[in-house]
Design a protein around this nucleic acid. Structure first.
Lengths: 211, 211
DNA sequence: AATTATACCGAGCGATCGCTCGGAATTCGA
DNA sequence: TCGAATTCCGAGCGATCGCTCGGTATAATT
């Protein structure tokens, strides 16, 4: 049972070390998977021993939840801001993709864990909050596509499939992305955005000739 | 240590029951994940007890490998045939996507396991063969895109990114696909194929105005 | 300086893990 | 029909799992 220190002078150090523990765990989970990573491995990764580690976390499950919380909340806030703004939908799509891919770049380990341990998150009931946040994010994405459709910017034969295709390509990105590689987050975001806008361009040559 | 029966009359039954074990394991792994599924859970899923189960498999790891082998080989054969044929690249793309998505539909559990346990497959050296087969499949996909580019059917700004986007959307499909749902494999394959062909259409309106 | 909260250690707990093995029951080949 | 091969059982092995707890050292507060 962990308890944050009540003495304010220690709180900052506690939070900092706690975050280091979470990040180290995210790195380990991203490489070997959550269930395949023993707490002994976490001890080696953090440099702590059992007693020390459990000073910062309650359970190993708790650690996974902390990783997901730390990841989702800031991205969800960015997405809400973009969605609430009155920009044209195609600009909103580009903005949210940039925010998303930059988030992947900045929190690569967290994202890999979040994707890889999907069956854990989808399973038990106490992951409900995380699932709800994921769904809210996907709903905002869908609404952007819907607005683009309504305003005649895009012509989408099957919006559900378009959304799932977009989710697929972005969610797959953490598995191959290398920081400092040929493509950075912005280039990938633009690539995906162009892909979607071109594929569903309302004024496409073929868009109007289909039965 | 398992040993296939030398008496030919029993070989058929042995193979059939062995496949049942593999399929049951695939179903369990797809739902809860490989490491989260205990052998005890596999015993319940198969109806066997420990001794009986290990009559058909060597180790739990072996079971995972069998699932992947059973999955990849037939799809790889189909892909090789399509790739070797002389159809126009846009037709090849559609054919390989149909084969791929039909394979996902027919072996949904296996595909989910194959995607979900990626870090197991990418990790240890004895998974080298599986990795090589995956890479061959992806290489054939890339070559189809390359041929489409060479023949002027598609204009792809970044072929690597286009390939990764396609891999992403297809590999993500097993996570949301429901057999008997609104979309079947063929419709999804066509949706993805149209998405790619439209996005990178050589005669697109915007394709020629980019800097 | 005395007191108390904090930080961390590390042996070891009970539970569960993957798996073994001797044997019983059944089936096939001769 | 009989011996051998096959199929499956299930108690239980050693190892590892996540985690606890009594203890010591250090730090902040008074």
């Amino acid at each position: 049972m962990p308890s944050p220190p009540s003495r304010p002078a220690l709180r900052a150090r506690y939070d900092q070390r706690r975050r280091r523990v979470i990040d180290a765990a995210a790195h380990a989970f991203a490489q070997r998977g959550y269930h395949a990573t023993s707490v002994a491995a976490l001890l080696q990764a953090t440099g702590l021993t059992a007693g020390g580690l459990y000073h910062y976390i309650a359970t190993k499950d708790d650690l996974l939840m902390l990783i997901c919380d730390e990841l989702i909340d800031p991205l969800l806030d960015r997405a809400r801001a973009i969605s609430a703004a009155q920009d044209p939908p195609q600009d909103q799509l580009r903005e949210i993709l940039h925010a998303w891919l930059e988030h992947i770049e900045a929190h690569l380990d967290h994202m890999r864990v979040f994707q890889q341990e999907r069956h854990v998150i989808e399973g038990e009931p106490h992951w409900h909050e995380i699932r709800a946040k994921r769904r809210e994010f996907e709903r905002m994405l869908d609404e952007i596509l819907a607005r683009a459709q309504e305003r005649g910017v895009m012509r989408i034969p099957d919006r559900r499939l378009a959304l799932l295709a977009l989710l697929g390509m972005v969610n797959y990105t953490p598995q191959w992305f290398h920081p400092g590689g040929r493509l950075d987050a912005a280039q990938i975001a633009d690539g995906y955005c162009d892909l979607m806008l071109e594929a569903y361009a309302a004024n496409s040559l073929r868009g109007s000739e289909s039965a």
